[in-house]
Structures are given as C-alpha cells and as structure tokens.
Computed example of a mutant assay.
Amino acid sequence: MNDDGASFAYLALMLVLPLSALIARRLPLGSMIKMALAWVAIFGVLIVLVGNWPRVAPMFQSAADTLGISDQAVSGGTVRIRMAEDGHFWASVAINGVQRRMLVDSGAATTAISARTAQAAGLDLAENSFPTIISTANGQISVQRATVAKLDLGAIHAVDLPVVVSPAFGDTDVIGMNFLSQLKSWRVENGFLILEPHTSFVP
C-alpha cells in the first residue's frame, strides 16, 4: 500500500468511532453531514501535520518560545532546557537536519545514536567497519563509530562530531561529554540546564 492509500486507511479507521456516535444520536441528516465533514477535516489536518512533522515542528517551537511555555529556549547563543518530569534534560536537536529529542547525559563519554536515527541521518557506518566494545551502565555492548557532519542544538552547532551507534540503545539518543566539553560552560540552575557556547559555536 502506498503512502496515500495508508493515510486514507488511517483516516477511515479513525472516523469510525465519531461517525458511529453521530449515527447513534439520530440527528437530522443535514446536521449529521456537517458534523461528519468537520471530523473529516480535523483528522485530515492531523494526518498532514504528522506526515510533515519535521517541517512544521519549528513553527510550533517558535510559538512555544514566544508564549514562554517551551521546554527549550534560546537567548542569544545560550540554550536553556527545562528539567522533564522524569528528572532528566531532553534537548530538541537536529542531526544532519533530522529532528530528534536527545537525552543530555554528562555521564556518557561519547554521544550515542540509535540505529534508527543513524539511518535517518544518513550516517556512514562503513567508515569504521569493525565494531568496538564499550562499557555502559547496562554492561558492555558492541558499537560502531561514525561522524555526524552537523548537530544543531538551538543556536549551538557542532560539526564533525564523533558518535557511537548501536541497536542496543533502542530508540534513545544521548548527547555525551564529547559535545558538552566543547561548550564554554554548562550548568544546572533552578531546574534548567543552561548551555553556554563559545562564540565560534554561534553563527
């Protein structure tokens, strides 16, 4: 099934419940048609947004920054990340242009990328075809080494950043000390992680 067919199928499945509810209410035909069309429009917009999320996400991020409700805000070159409910700091990052939510972990020596993210970002795992064994909090795992051409975190830009890639990371991507150590400073203050770049990091 192509993407258009799949989208139509998802839309049809999601409409079953609200349309069934409309029929059960025994509304006049005209009112029922209007409400059905409204539901079709709502779900159609949602499908478009999800399918184009990498392009529309920055617009939502800008609106959240303006309203002061964003978990990540940029002031000049400084990036402030609010602590999440799980007690960790999650950064909105672009890896070779691919949007990801990454855990900031000062206990990780090297930035770690999931196999799925590596594929989406077009990382060349063949540049070092021999796997390496590294020690993690969950024991020793086999990883491949690669290089991210550009990693963007707000106004902070790192180029040619070494990373490790492994299916063992699941869907979690981690920013490690090899990124943090390039900053002018980083600190936790009043529930925010504050990242201060060197001027060379800021365009």
Score class of each variant (00 low, 15 high):
86 D>V: 03
88 H>F: 06
90 W>C: 04
89 F>Y: 13
106 S>Q: 10
92 S>G: 14
81 I>T: 11
91 A>F: 10
103 L>H: 09
99 Q>K: 12
106 S>G: 12
94 A>V: 09
104 V>A: 07
89 F>R: 01
107 G>A: 09
87 G>P: 08
105 D>H: 04
88 H>Q: 05
111 T>G: 03
95 I>V: 14
87 G>H: 02
92 S>P: 12
106 S>W: 01
95 I>G: 00
98 V>L: 05
111 T>F: 04
101 R>L: 14
104 V>W: 07
104 V>Q: 04
108 A>R: 00
93 V>P: 02
104 V>K: 03
110 T>P: 00
111 T>C: 08
81 I>F: 10
88 H>K: 09
81 I>L: 13
107 G>R: 08
96 N>K: 02
95 I>D: 02
102 M>F: 05
81 I>V: 15
79 V>L: 10
92 S>T: 11
105 D>Y: 02
91 A>E: 03
84 A>M: 13
99 Q>C: 03
89 F>M: 04
95 I>Y: 01
104 V>F: 09
87 G>M: 06
90 W>S: 04
84 A>N: 13
102 M>L: 07
107 G>D: 07
107 G>W: 07
92 S>C: 13
103 L>P: 09
79 V>M: 10
85 E>A: 15
103 L>K: 07
82 R>P: 10
90 W>T: 05
81 I>M: 13
97 G>A: 07
105 D>Q: 03
102 M>R: 01
86 D>T: 01
82 R>Q: 15
107 G>C: 07
106 S>E: 10
94 A>I: 05
109 A>I: 00
92 S>H: 15
91 A>P: 09
83 M>S: 13
93 V>K: 04
93 V>E: 04
87 G>V: 11
99 Q>I: 09
80 R>W: 14
95 I>P: 00
103 L>Q: 05
89 F>P: 01
94 A>C: 10
83 M>V: 15
81 I>K: 03
111 T>V: 04
107 G>L: 08
